[in-house]
Computed example of a mutant assay.
Amino acid sequence: MQLVDHDTFIKRLSTLFESCKDQGSIWITHKRLSYDKEDVAMKTGVGVEDPRSYPCLLRVSDGDKVKFSTTVNSTELLKFHQIYGALLKSSMTTLRKRDKKREKQRAEEAAARKKKLSEPVVVDGSKRGSGRRKRQRQIKAALKQQKTLGKIKAKEEAKATAKMTAEVV
């Protein structure tokens, strides 16, 4: 991993975006830079601000060959993020768009399943004779529907109790 200054970082990142425009991926990592054994105790006290300032570490990799990083101090962060944000906005034009047609289709299927569950299964036909198999299938479907509705109700109750306990805590 090569540590570079801000201008070099921006230039190399823009060339990396250009090289990976047609094919490839780029991994960008942001994190607070911490020093070994110095940051073990992060809390200084209740209501007391930490006098230390921590720089931000940005790493970029294409997965194989290209790996570089830079550190940005808190005083330079706003200026750097303006340039960095503009570069990201201009470079991320080739992202795949959401497949709204598929999402709409799945939502419609879910609505149809919900509607089917809300309608009760009508059991008709004779107990013996020509309509017996039809009646047995209807009874089986009604039992399956009741079981599914019971599971849904149990899930909703579990969510409600989890929400109640989260509000209490």
Rank of each mutant, 00 (worst) to 15 (best):
67 K>F: 09
66 V>L: 08
85 G>M: 01
84 Y>L: 07
106 R>C: 11
86 A>R: 06
103 E>T: 02
77 L>D: 07
55 P>S: 03
102 R>S: 08
101 K>C: 03
56 C>Q: 13
96 R>G: 14
101 K>D: 11
84 Y>G: 07
51 P>C: 08
63 G>A: 14
107 A>R: 13
85 G>F: 00
88 L>W: 10
80 F>A: 01
57 L>C: 06
72 V>M: 00
81 H>A: 05
106 R>I: 08
93 T>S: 06
106 R>S: 02
59 R>K: 11
101 K>T: 12
69 S>V: 10
84 Y>I: 04
47 G>I: 05
86 A>L: 12
53 S>I: 10
84 Y>D: 05
47 G>W: 00
96 R>I: 05
89 K>Q: 14
61 S>C: 09
109 E>V: 03
84 Y>P: 03
51 P>G: 02
62 D>L: 07
97 K>Q: 12
54 Y>E: 11
100 K>I: 03
48 V>S: 02
78 L>R: 15
105 Q>T: 04
102 R>G: 00
62 D>C: 12
57 L>I: 08
91 S>E: 03
86 A>T: 11
77 L>R: 11
96 R>V: 10
69 S>A: 15
104 K>H: 09
64 D>N: 15
68 F>G: 00
107 A>C: 01
101 K>N: 03
85 G>A: 09
56 C>G: 01
103 E>G: 00
85 G>P: 02
94 T>C: 10
65 K>G: 15
93 T>A: 02
52 R>W: 13
104 K>F: 04
81 H>R: 15
77 L>G: 01
59 R>E: 03
82 Q>L: 08
95 L>I: 09
46 V>S: 13
110 A>G: 00
64 D>Q: 15
79 K>T: 13
51 P>R: 08
47 G>E: 08
72 V>H: 01
48 V>C: 08
52 R>I: 06
104 K>V: 02
65 K>V: 15
92 M>K: 11
96 R>E: 14
60 V>S: 04
85 G>S: 09
49 E>S: 14
78 L>W: 07
60 V>Y: 04
61 S>F: 03
102 R>Q: 03
75 T>S: 12
53 S>Y: 09
104 K>R: 13
59 R>I: 01
72 V>S: 00
66 V>M: 13
95 L>T: 09
106 R>T: 00
110 A>P: 04
81 H>W: 05
95 L>S: 01
54 Y>H: 06
83 I>R: 12
101 K>V: 12
100 K>Y: 00
64 D>A: 15
109 E>R: 05
93 T>W: 07
108 E>N: 02
78 L>E: 11
69 S>P: 08
69 S>L: 15
56 C>V: 13
89 K>L: 14
92 M>F: 09
63 G>F: 02
95 L>N: 04
62 D>P: 03
53 S>P: 06
110 A>F: 10
98 R>P: 07
102 R>C: 00
63 G>E: 14
87 L>F: 00
49 E>N: 14
81 H>F: 06
84 Y>A: 06
63 G>T: 10
90 S>A: 06
67 K>Q: 13
86 A>D: 13
79 K>M: 09
49 E>V: 12
110 A>E: 12
66 V>S: 07
83 I>K: 02
110 A>T: 07
77 L>E: 02
108 E>A: 03
109 E>K: 04
88 L>K: 06
57 L>A: 10
103 E>L: 05
